[in-house]
Design a protein around this nucleic acid. Structure first.
Lengths: 154, 154
DNA sequence: CCCGAATAGTCAGGGCACTGATTATTTCGT
DNA sequence: ACGAAATAATCAGTGCCCTGACTATTCGGG
């Protein structure tokens, strides 16, 4: 008789929130392209020619996951992967025409979905919602890389 | 040049939030028992003898996922599974002594972790954080089962 | 110049999450 | 009472997510 109320646990809420989002994405945006895949496309629209590691950094995916996502996008013909002639360890990534077209299409649908998703909140609450989540996520991520005491710029 | 700012996309934020939570759970609570597994233990502390489907309903896991989670907990000896003599389709679930002990131990650690996780927010913001997420998640989940217009009780 | 440290990517393995198909059992309607 | 619909659970298949071990390439100091 010592059960806790999970609805006060942020982790549990985070999981439920993501499930809810997954559901909405699937019905309103795409059944083929997932939200993480869209994030990768978006990163490459902003900065064509990034390598895998940096893409992962931009969208918050670790090296293993980003490799899988990129391989799927490559199989679908949405991006190209070529060795960096300057540094043989890297692959440089670039969207294909089809990839850019897909990104444009999904951008519109994603905006609509976000409105529905955040529909239960008024404008002020929506801003707060994003701000609070961002602060919590950033702080927890900060615990990962203790950020060396002094000097950071090369 | 039509990239969007993902930091304003609730779905992206939800994913990052969950990753942050995963990280903290792993370091502060347990490397063996995951957060969804704890949720199942917790549901069975509150209501011993539930069947799989109902456990899934309580903690927000679909039938397939709950089956996997329960099988892992069973392998670890944290719960027992017996056929319902009243209804041969069901399995009734009950924690073992070890399962109850594990739940008690993790409950303490989870509370500590939640404090760290929500640390960046003041008390008022923490309440708001939970409230906003719950409202968004509940609303999106409501879209799933349109809740038939009239009559519900058998 | 050459060896060792750092870095980019891959791979194996475990876990969560969903869908759609299948099986076993119960329940309801005629 | 019997067959059809509903329900509980399983299974196959896909995708995300992490860790730890491994490979290949580059870079830096002696």
């Amino acid at each position: 008789m010592a059960a806790v109320d999970l609805s006060t646990h942020p982790g549990h809420l985070a999981r439920r929130l993501q499930q809810a989002h997954y559901l909405l994405w699937n019905t309103m945006v795409s059944e083929e392209i997932t939200s993480p895949q869209f994030a990768v496309l978006n990163a490459l629209v902003a900065e064509p020619g990034l390598d895998q590691r940096t893409v992962g950094e931009r969208v918050g995916l670790d090296r293993s996951t980003v490799a899988e996502v990129i391989s799927r996008l490559g199989r679908r013909g949405l991006l190209d992967k070529v060795r960096d002639p300057q540094d043989g360890r890297r692959f440089l990534l670039r969207l294909t025409q089809e990839g850019e077209r897909t990104h444009r299409k999904l951008t519109v649908r994603t905006a609509r979905m976000n409105q529905v998703f955040l529909g239960p909140l008024d404008a002020e609450e929506q801003a707060l919602f994003c701000d609070l989540i961002r602060r919590v996520a950033d702080a927890a991520e900060g615990l990962r890389n203790p950020a060396e005491p002094l000097a950071a710029q090369p």
